[in-house]
Simulated scan of single mutants.
Amino acid sequence: MFPAAAATLAARRSSRFAAWVRAWRAGLVPYDEVAEEIAGDEEHLVADAPGTWTDVPLGDALPALSKLSPDDIRLALPAPGDPRGLPARASGANASQPSPFTGAALVAGEAVVARGLGFIPEVRTHTSGSGVTFETVLWRVYPLPDAPLPLGDLTAAEAEADLSAALAEATAALTRLDVAQWRPELAGALAALRRPDAGIDLPPGFDPRARRLFARASVLDRVLALAEHAAPGGAVNGYEAQQRDAALRPLTTACRRALVAACNSPLRPE
Rank of each mutant, 00 (worst) to 15 (best):
E228V: 01
P87H: 00
G234S: 08
A108C: 06
P100Q: 01
V260C: 00
A64I: 03
L138Y: 15
Y239C: 05
L77R: 06
A156H: 01
G40T: 15
A165M: 08
A4E: 13
E36P: 15
R222A: 10
A10N: 09
G188A: 01
T125W: 11
E42Q: 12
A147N: 11
E37C: 14
S164E: 15
A105K: 01
A4Q: 08
L224K: 12
D146M: 09
S164G: 15
G129V: 04
L75F: 09
I200E: 08
A187L: 05
Q243V: 12
L77T: 04
A111C: 03
T175P: 01
A235N: 10
A230Q: 15
I120K: 02
T252S: 13
A210G: 03
D221N: 10
E169G: 02
A49C: 01
E110L: 13
S128Y: 03
A191S: 14
A159L: 08
N94K: 09
S69V: 10
G131V: 04
A258Q: 04
A191M: 12
R140C: 04
Q243Y: 11
A231P: 10
F214C: 00
A170C: 12
C263Y: 03
S96C: 05
G27D: 15
P30W: 10
L58A: 07
L106T: 11
V56S: 00
A217D: 11
V219T: 07
R84F: 05
R257I: 03
L58G: 08
G40F: 05
T102Y: 07
F214V: 00
P196C: 12
A215W: 03
R25C: 03
D162Q: 14
A246H: 09
E135K: 12
P184I: 03
L213R: 13
F214R: 02
G109M: 03
G81L: 05
E110H: 07
I73S: 04
L77I: 06
P83T: 08
W182E: 10
V223Q: 05
A26M: 02
L138A: 09
R13A: 08
A88M: 09
N94T: 06
P148R: 08
V29S: 09
R16Q: 08
I38E: 07
G234R: 09
V179M: 10
R222V: 11
L28C: 06
H44N: 07
P30V: 02
V112Q: 01
V29P: 03
A262C: 09
S265M: 03
E135T: 15
E36I: 14
A159T: 06
E158C: 08
P70N: 04
W53T: 05
A187V: 00
A93S: 09
R74K: 10
P269V: 08
A105N: 00
P3L: 02
F134Q: 13
A227S: 13
R124C: 11
R216F: 05
A192Y: 02
Y239L: 13
W24C: 11
T171G: 13
V113E: 01
R268N: 10
G81W: 06
V141Q: 01
E185W: 05
K67T: 14
A11F: 12
H44R: 06
P145I: 07
D48I: 04
R268D: 14
A156W: 02
P184V: 05
I38S: 04
R13H: 15
P50M: 03
W20L: 05
L224A: 10
